[in-house]
């Protein structure tokens, strides 16, 4: 088991070395990179915004219900909601959402290219398939995911505000007061750093599982599931590690 794990990790490192080699032609690389930016960013925007709106709404409502006490100031609801949303929910939950959305797409795309010998065709042509196919995806996700995280934070906070305004559980003034209370830019830096690391893990692990498929459609399905499970697990472990280091 441990030997298998180490062997897979070794294969992953070798794969990364292939991915981070110089592209055969920069103009082709930029073309693919722009395509990935568009596909990943625009393609995931709607789901991220919907989930964030709902998440912000629920977290605000839950917080308001839990701290109904005369001893705790009303602005605490906004403060707790903002802190949870910025520091944990948006970077981690949205990254896990993107693992399911983008990660499975990456594994399926690269895996089907492997199964239909398109990757072999690239190799025979003299193109480094790992660099040509994966590097644009990795660099695009490292840019796209933090942008999506910022949108997610904005929508989640807006969701919270909307809930407060519609339910009247606290006044919107108190909520806004809590949102801005003791705001630190470092919290956003921390959130975006986590998102970048998670984006790297998601794109490389998903690509790795797609790239090493041997077999057909059945293996493609298994690889897609494995990619999601492993990425999610690594993201959760790294979340603890990064939090320990940065906070």
């Amino acid at each position: 088991m441990l030997r298998q794990l180490l062997a897979t990790f070794g294969e992953y490192l070798i794969f990364l070395r292939q991915v981070f080699s110089k592209p055969a032609k920069w103009s082709m690389f930029f073309k693919k990179w722009l395509f990935e930016l568009d596909a990943m960013g625009i393609g995931s925007m709607l789901i991220v915004c919907i989930v964030s709106l709902a998440m912000g709404s629920v977290i605000t409502l839950q917080t308001a219900l839990q701290i109904e006490s005369g001893w705790i100031p009303a602005w605490t609801v906004g403060f707790v909601a903002r802190t949870s949303i910025v520091m944990e929910l948006c970077p981690t939950i949205i990254s896990l959402l993107l693992v399911g959305n983008l990660g499975s797409r990456i594994t399926a795309e690269i895996g089907s290219m492997r199964v239909t010998e398109q990757i072999d065709a690239l190799e025979v042509m003299g193109v480094n398939p790992a660099s040509h196919l994966v590097l644009p995806k990795v660099l695009a996700s490292i840019i796209v995911n933090p942008v999506l995280c910022i949108f997610s934070i904005a929508f989640a906070l807006f969701g919270g505000f909307l809930t407060v305004w519609l339910t009247g559980c606290i006044s919107t003034y108190n909520f806004m007061d809590g949102l801005t209370y003791c705001f630190r830019v470092y919290d956003v830096v921390y959130a975006l750093t986590k998102t970048c690391v998670f984006a790297f893990v998601m794109s490389t692990v998903a690509s790795f599982y797609g790239y090493r498929i041997e077999g057909g459609a059945l293996e493609l399905g298994k690889a897609s599931t494995q990619g999601i499970v492993v990425s999610s697990f690594v993201i959760l472990v790294l979340n603890v590690v990064i939090t320990n280091i940065m906070l």
């Binding site: 290219m113 239909t116 010998e117 398109q118 072999d120 065709a121 025979v124």
Partner: peptide, 10 residues
């Protein structure tokens, strides 16, 4: 090289 399944980029 021409592959068994053509291997054209879809």
């Amino acid at each position: 090289m021409v592959f068994q399944g053509s291997a054209l980029f879809d």
